[in-house]
């Protein structure tokens, strides 16, 4: 298989593209138009607006505003922490679900999807009900000196909740399809759990894991609704980058708002590029192993 040929059309029977040329051109044109208008132009517009006052204005908006600076710092702390928690959780959940049979296994899989079905605003509300000053646990935690709502622990909780399924959902089908023969063999040859994880399981799932982490991280950075509710939106304290975008927008500070938005967009584009390269790499690896087994 040639390197770029991972997704070329299967030529057996020369099928498929038997629509007349005009229709094909029309459909492809429509696809370009949709993506262009819905995705490309908006992305370009973010940067056009962000740099409307030139490079100096951009730097001023982004770096010389202490509240904006703090929001960048906060987002870049909370998001990786949430990703770390969800990576550990995803590994544990996938290991439990794909490697063992036990009653309630299906229920567990269903529970994993619940965060996708709940509005982020409702997620925030639930944490306020638990940990807020009028909440069930809030007052006693407050007596112990722990502040969750309107503070960073609340941000972390909300972000972790919303991004909970990403790593697990990526790993479960992958580990299911890999099967456990290799792992069982390693154990019967005397591998310790530690060796088993680092030498067998992790190398097998590493790209799926990276893929899940990338998606989880992108979502964690952009989370808005849940964080909006639990943060109290205190400038310079609990405002994350997306919240800062909203606040500057409300203050009619468009250049400032777009400057923060441009940074978020840049992160999204880096995420996409990373995903794209990872997919190509995995496809090439698969093609290579297929070639090896065929010859």
């Amino acid at each position: 298989m040639h390197p770029s040929g991972v997704r070329t059309k299967k030529s057996a029977g020369g099928l498929v593209a038997d629509e007349p040329l005009w229709l094909r051109v029309l459909l492809i044109g429509a696809a370009y138009a949709v993506i262009g208008l819905l995705i490309l132009v908006p992305v370009a517009y973010v940067f056009v607006q962000a740099f409307a006052e030139g490079w100096q204005g951009y730097v001023k908006n982004l770096w010389h505003d202490p509240d904006t600076r703090h929001s960048i710092f906060l987002t870049l702390t909370v998001a990786p922490l949430a990703v770390l928690l969800n990576t550990v959780f995803g590994l544990a959940a996938a290991w439990t679900i794909t490697r063992f049979k036990f009653p309630g296994r299906t229920l567990l899989v269903t529970l994993l999807d619940v965060p996708f079905a709940i509005s982020p605003v409702v997620v925030g509300l639930m944490f306020v009900l638990l940990f807020g000053m009028q909440g069930y646990l809030g007052p006693s935690l407050r007596q112990m000196g722990i502040k969750v709502i309107f503070a960073w622990p609340g941000l972390l909780l909300a972000t972790t909740f919303v991004t909970l399924p990403f790593v697990a959902r990526e790993l479960i089908p992958l580990m299911e399809s890999l099967g456990s023969e290799e792992e069982v063999a390693a154990v019967s040859l005397g591998a310790s759990p530690w060796q088993l994880f680092w030498r067998i399981t992790l190398p097998n799932i590493k790209w799926g894991l990276v893929y899940g982490i990338i998606q989880c991280h992108a979502r964690a950075i952009g989370e808005f609704g849940a964080v909006y509710v639990v943060s109290g939106r205190i400038a310079g304290e609990t405002d994350t980058m997306p919240l800062r975008v909203e606040k500057l927008f409300q203050e009619y500070n468009n250049p400032g708002s777009f400057a923060v938005a441009s940074l978020l967009t840049l992160m999204a584009l880096v995420t996409l590029a990373g995903k794209y390269m990872l997919e190509r790499y995995i496809a090439q690896q698969m093609a290579a192993t297929r070639e090896n087994t065929e010859s």
């Binding site: 992305v43 952009g222 808005f224 997306p242 975008v245 967009t265 999204a268 584009l269 995420t271």
Partner: peptide, 10 residues
């Protein structure tokens, strides 16, 4: 991948 706040703003 894009934060929804950015989408709304744009």
């Amino acid at each position: 991948a894009l934060p929804t706040a950015v989408a709304g703003l744009v």
